[in-house]
């Protein structure tokens, strides 16, 4: 979580300094969800994380160097400069499927991944991610319906961060939660505090275990608050400041580090060292990316088709 936060802060700093390319998305508020769920998967499982799930990419082994190089459009980035920021950062050797901007597409792709596991009788699980906004699209409902019919080994993580770009939840749907909709479609669901990484991880691990043992799909709705704009360009002035103040007191990274201290699991020196190490990794990744080659324009037409 600390690395996710540090890398995210570093991206924001780069962009504010004019060193970024295109746009970048923010993670703040989502760290406990991407880390808690990502950590619940086994190496052979497959995840389809989104643009606010940096923690999941890191946990599955995608290096900060490749990620930052992708953010900066370099040849050494995951997509070699073909796609932006975390979009398209798929790597099947790490069990990561890249996403597209048409958000519910990840959910249907993950359904197919899960169905392939069932087809081959493999004890693997697919985990997919979607925001509250994405759940209002018809495809989300199509997938839950079909997943229930096929009892697909699929865990759907809904990151209910209360805003779809600038549109608050009450303008998106009647009711505050996605879980009842999931239940109605035959996919048992649980709502969890998305700012408590232990709670997220416990619920995700239980869901993964039930799914892996043939119990059919599960949905996990993690409630949080998107603490910054939709992307770097967005000041999110439309969010009432009182709401952000309230959630700021529940910062998932701060909450967890305080808990580790309170329970005597680590001491302050450990956390300081951890923070220093995260800064070092991040600075290395930025230096690597900024000094690495741009993609070759002569190769712009390569790779449209698989050979």
């Amino acid at each position: 979580m600390r690395l996710t936060r540090t890398l995210d802060d570093q991206m924001i700093a780069l962009w504010k300094q004019g060193r970024g390319v295109g746009g970048t998305f923010n993670q703040r508020g989502h760290e406990a969800i991407s880390v808690g769920t990502g950590a619940a998967l086994a190496p052979d499982d497959v995840a389809t994380p989104l643009h606010r799930d940096l923690g999941c990419y890191l946990i599955r082994g995608m290096t900060p160097r490749r990620i930052v190089a992708n953010q900066l459009g370099r040849a050494a980035g995951v997509t070699g400069g073909r796609d932006a920021n975390l979009h398209g950062c798929g790597d099947l050797t790490l069990g990561i499927v890249g996403f597209i901007s048409h958000i519910p597409q990840s959910v249907s792709t993950a359904l197919g991944v899960a169905m392939s596991f069932a087809y081959r009788n493999e004890p693997r699980v697919a985990m997919t991610y979607i925001g509250d906004g994405g759940t209002t699209a018809g495809l989300f409902h199509e997938v839950l319906n079909m997943a229930a019919v096929h009892r697909a080994p699929l865990v759907v993580v809904v990151e209910n961060n209360q805003y779809a770009y600038s549109t608050p939840l009450h303008q998106q749907m009647a009711g505050q939660n996605i879980a009842p909709r999931s239940e109605a479609l035959g996919v048992p669901a649980e709502v969890v505090d998305g700012n408590d990484v232990d709670a997220v991880h416990t619920a995700a691990a239980a869901a993964v275990e039930r799914v892996r043992s043939g119990g059919g799909p599960r949905l996990l709705e993690a409630r949080t608050m998107r603490m910054l704009g939709h992307a770097i360009h967005d000041g999110a002035e439309y969010v009432p400041s009182g709401l952000l103040e309230k959630w700021k007191k529940r910062d998932p990274v701060v909450l967890y580090e305080r808990k580790l201290l309170d329970e005597g699991i680590v001491d302050q020196a450990y956390l300081d060292e951890s923070a220093r190490r995260c800064r070092e990794i991040t600075e290395d990744a930025v230096a690597f990316a900024e000094s690495s080659e741009w993609p070759d324009p002569a190769a712009v037409e390569e790779g449209v088709f698989a050979p």
Partner: peptide
């Protein structure tokens, strides 16, 4: 969409 995921696998 499901065919996409199956094909990726």
């Amino acid at each position: 969409g499901a065919a996409n995921g199956m094909a990726l696998m």
